[in-house]
Amino acid sequence: MASYEKLFDTLGLRTWCDAGATGGPMTLSELVSKAGGKTAEGEAIPFPSLDVLHKACGAFPRTRDMTAGLERFFLDVKDPIKVVLDPLTQPLSWALRNSIEVMQSLPWWAAIIILVAIAQFAGRRVGVTLFVLASFLGLAFIDHFGYAMETLAIILVCTVICVLIGVPIGIAMSRSNTLERWLTPVLDMLQTLPTFVYLIPLIFLFSVTEPKLYGIAIILYAIVPSIRLTNLGIRLVDGDVLEAADAFGMTSRQKLLRVQLPLALPNIMAGINQTIMLSLSMVVIASLVSAPGLGTLVLRGINKLELGVGLVAGLGIVVLAIVLDRVSRAALQRVNKMHQPGA
């Protein structure tokens, strides 16, 4: 350690170091060494980390000061950010709260009828519809229906918002190569970051009691495929058909509505299917920040070591995942068939 002190001395920075010295409480390792314990002191040349440099020269902050500084920075900018973000995201809280409430207030038979009707309408496949019916009856039989409805309500709201925001972004991205170049790394990052990392800045910004906290986390994570596949789908539209649209004098709006979106629909639907599945995986993790539903039961299983509760809830999530996947896939196949039944 002495080596670094000497270094600062020879560089003639001693006065600068002492002037900038900040007192503050000792770090844990300092306490330990004071108490007579042995630390890494013995090493000849320790790695010049912030803590080590601080000891040699008071002007350097300790790592602890650095993280505390970051926290202070976040707390400082939090209020101005909230001023902008709060009104923007308030509808999300409202939508989540209400849809959960509506789902809960429906009598069980009405909820099942509605869900089965949706499955039939989207997929038009009797087998899939029957499977949906059996799944929900099963969940109701083991008293997990209410939890499943909460999870479903959250997924529904988040998916709708993902589509409403993601498809227009995807369209914009397909029209501008510059935008695509800038957005692609952002989307890559959103998709590769471990899901827990999302939650940290969000917890700073919003209180844990607000539904939008988990709503935003889910949307950020699940929106990526909607954007990506809309962009891809539109870029893959047959150039000859687009040329025909131009030749007959379509405006770019007519082209979008009559050529690009319909021809990109199979890809867009594939994106929505992925968005639904990602919402489900995130809603389970979001139970850490008070998202209701099946995830809370899994969390209870982990926290209190209630193996049975956790396993059954996990199974319920699997059933829900299969239901969502089957139905959205059936809808996708229906669209595909409408486009190229020959293929």
């Binding site: 058909v241 040329e243 025909a244 131009d246 007959f248 629909l265």
Partner: peptide, 21 residues
């Protein structure tokens, strides 16, 4: 130009270029 394409010119393509849907 849009008006010209809509009223004065029509086009037939080698690969037909019909709207598949």
């Amino acid at each position: 130009l849009l008006h010209l394409r809509r009223t004065q010119m029509s086009m037939v393509f080698q690969k037909f270029a019909l709207l598949p849907h």
